[in-house]
Amino acid sequence: MKFNIIILLFSTIVGYSQIKSVSYLDGKDKLEGFFIKAEKANPKNIGVIVLPAWMGIDDHSKESAEALSKLGYHAFVADIYGSINNPKNTEEAAKLSGYFKNNPEEYQKRIQLAIDQLVKQGANVNEIAVIGYCFGGTGAIEAARGNLNVKGVVSFHGGLGKDKMRITTPIAAKVLVLHGADDPYVSQKEISAFQDEMRTAKADWQMNYYANAVHAFTHKNLNTDNSKGAAYNEKADKRSWEAMKSFLLELFK
């Protein structure tokens, strides 16, 4: 019995280790992302960038990349902060994520560098999508705003706002926003401004609301107490993933 348990644990670890570390640079800053090759046939070499939440690369983002590979996509988890800058607590995460939110061109640059690495790993430069969670969801929208060469972006419970001084330009990438209907961190004013921005940008956009869901509803490590402002919601998690799958199928046909 003990022998069987050891074998089972070993195979789980081996399966997870299919995600490989990839080191790359932004000037002198060392970045370390994670790549996993599509497990199914992928004749177009479609690739998907995964942007982590504000605590940086975590199990959640790696698990998403692994799930994408099972669907037949090459996946790359982007390192936005740098390999020596992962926040140790929420205060550090707020400071680091705040920097990139306030300097969107730097955020877009880090996303582009991740795309470059995904292409180096075999993805087609013209068949790329970006998905992101929370802070990463904001990044997915920034990839569209920056007109990076991506076909579409998906924001899971991401921030939607941008500085009023920024000029709205046409958005070519298709946009899908998956939003908790009771998210206390994204105001109705921010939502309305975002939707107006999408209209002005002539974007092909969609926004799905999930009932009884607050911020970070895809994160299984959280409890289910909505009063905390951030909580896991199994139904919203599953529904939003299915919405993303349909979006990607339409995107890449």
Rank of each mutant, 00 (worst) to 15 (best):
G159C: 01
R199P: 02
N221I: 10
K164C: 07
A201G: 02
W205F: 06
A201Y: 00
V186P: 04
D163T: 11
W205L: 04
V186C: 08
A173Q: 00
M165E: 14
G159V: 02
A211W: 07
T168K: 13
V214A: 02
K151F: 02
F156K: 11
G161T: 09
V175I: 01
F217W: 03
A211Y: 11
H215W: 04
S155M: 06
I171N: 08
D163P: 05
T169G: 05
N149L: 15
A181S: 13
L178A: 03
E190P: 10
H219D: 15
G161P: 01
D196W: 07
M198D: 08
M207H: 06
K220Y: 10
L176K: 10
R166P: 00
I191K: 12
D225A: 12
R199L: 15
A216E: 04
R199K: 15
A216P: 02
M165N: 13
V214D: 02
R166D: 12
A181H: 07
H215C: 10
D225W: 08
L178P: 01
H179G: 08
M198S: 11
M165H: 07
G161R: 04
A201L: 02
H179Y: 07
V154P: 09
V153R: 07
G161D: 09
N208Y: 15
N212Q: 07
F217T: 03
G180E: 04
S192N: 15
F194V: 03
Q188N: 14
D182S: 13
A173D: 00
D182L: 08
S192C: 07
G158Q: 06
G180C: 10
K220R: 14
D183E: 14
L176H: 06
H179I: 02
A173W: 00
I167S: 09
D182P: 08
L160K: 06
T169A: 07
R199A: 13
D196E: 12
V154D: 15
Y185D: 06
A216T: 05
T224S: 11
Q188G: 09
S192M: 15
S192P: 01
G159F: 04
L222Q: 10
N147G: 15
A203C: 03
D163M: 10
L176D: 08
N212Y: 05
R199V: 11
K162G: 09
E197T: 09
F156D: 07
V153P: 00
G158P: 03
A193K: 14
E197Q: 14
F194C: 05
T169F: 13
P184E: 14
V214Q: 01
R166S: 04
N149P: 14
Q206H: 03
I167H: 03
D163E: 09
W205T: 00
F156Q: 15
D183R: 04
N147K: 13
N221F: 13
Y210F: 06
K189A: 13
V214E: 00
N149A: 15
N212R: 04
A211C: 07
V175Q: 01
A172R: 12
W205Q: 01
D196L: 14
K151C: 05
V186K: 02
E197F: 04
A201T: 05
K202E: 08
M198Q: 08
S187Y: 01
